[in-house]
Design a protein around this nucleic acid. Structure first.
Lengths: 204, 204
DNA sequence: GATTAATTTAAACAAGCATTTAAAACTATA
DNA sequence: TATAGTTTTAAATGCTTGTTTAAATTAATC
């Protein structure tokens, strides 16, 4: 992944990504980024023209990363139960690899909803996945409860993402260390899979 | 609620609460607060000594507000199904009244987890509610699935809170205006109640 | 190897930041 | 009404912010 001699532009972008994800746009200074990248403070503007433009580039990338794996799974030719399980596993993996991502996305969109318009194509893709067809077929078959994608998708996303969002609260409230939290999260994951399938799949 | 002549100290605190909730600590300047309160910029420091101290007072209040109604409901002498329903209704109401609250809490804790230590008593209260006894009794009875409070509580909280957290995304993704979102949220609320009870209560 | 272009640098820029100052304007008590 | 205490004010504090400058250094082209 990492080149021997990473280009300055990429070095800055990678560093900025790390800092922005941790501290958010408002909490990050140009000097923070330069320090993290180990580069001169003027180079951010030389390559990206402004802090705002650099941020928007990164935000676009992060949003894409957040949605891409989901879209991929939703289009897989596997049955609904397996798909739900994989969706949740994937979210779980994502939250472990990029624990700052979801709170970052939610917070930046909350403060400036227009930032969301960065990439419309992602939304179009999400609205035309094979999963939607599967749900409709299942309802017609009588194997699935009637439920719109609008209602099901957030259920799949929220449960895992929320416990990572609220990780500090959980650790404090239930006296867990990081290892304890991992065990707890795995437990929770299985509950969620069972609960959603239970509800969606008729006669499960 | 609002006095005819609100004391300056309260005027500043109320204004600061509004601004902090909307923009977060980093995104809020002393001048923002003074402008919102329509007061001289020096008065914030006159009454609260610093922006940080004012913030911590407000953060404590918000955290208390977030947990208090939950604790109250968990201690009610009503059956588990009714309690779950009321918990979810309460979260729903809270998110409509204070849409910025949850993202604010999550974000500030994420950036500075030590802020959470502001009020330990809330956590103690949460860990000794009547609901825990009820769950244990239900498991002993064979009426409830074996499930720890650690696993159940986040399920109750996450589903409603998450769709409000991600409200801009939902509106954009599913082409909703504010009215449409309200209808959608009500729908989702009923799904969540049914799904959780379905899973928890044996033979439901 | 000289000349042009691209990159990096230290220093400076004005604007905005949280906070402080000291004087002014109130309010309450005598 | 005079006096002491509280509250509010405009102005200034020193520091940090994002961004720019112009010179220095490196790389590329002939």
């Amino acid at each position: 992944m990492k080149c021997i001699t990473e280009k300055s532009e990429d070095k800055i972008k990678d560093a900025a990504r790390r800092v922005f994800l941790k501290k958010g746009f408002d909490g990050t200074t140009s000097r923070d980024i330069a320090r993290e990248a180990d580069m001169n403070i003027a180079l951010t503007n030389y390559y990206f023209r402004s802090k705002e433009k650099l941020f928007l580039e990164i935000f676009r990338d992060v949003l894409e990363m957040y949605f891409n794996s989901t879209i991929e799974i939703l289009n897989k030719k596997i049955d609904v139960k397996a798909k739900i399980s994989e969706m949740i596993d994937n979210d779980f993996k994502m939250m472990k690899e990029e624990p700052d991502m979801v709170i970052f996305i939610m917070n930046e969109i909350h403060k400036e909803p227009d930032r969301l318009f960065a990439d419309m194509s992602l939304f179009k893709q999400l609205k035309s996945t094979y999963f939607i067809t599967q749900l409709e077929e299942g309802v017609a078959n009588g194997t699935l409860r009637k439920m719109d994608i609008e209602n099901l998708l957030p259920l799949l996303k929220c449960s895992i993402e929320f416990i990572f969002l609220a990780k500090p609260i959980h650790k404090k409230l239930f006296n867990m260390d990081d290892a304890g939290f991992e065990i707890y999260a795995e437990e929770q994951k299985e509950h969620i899979k069972a609960m959603i399938c239970n509800y969606l799949v008729i006669g499960d």
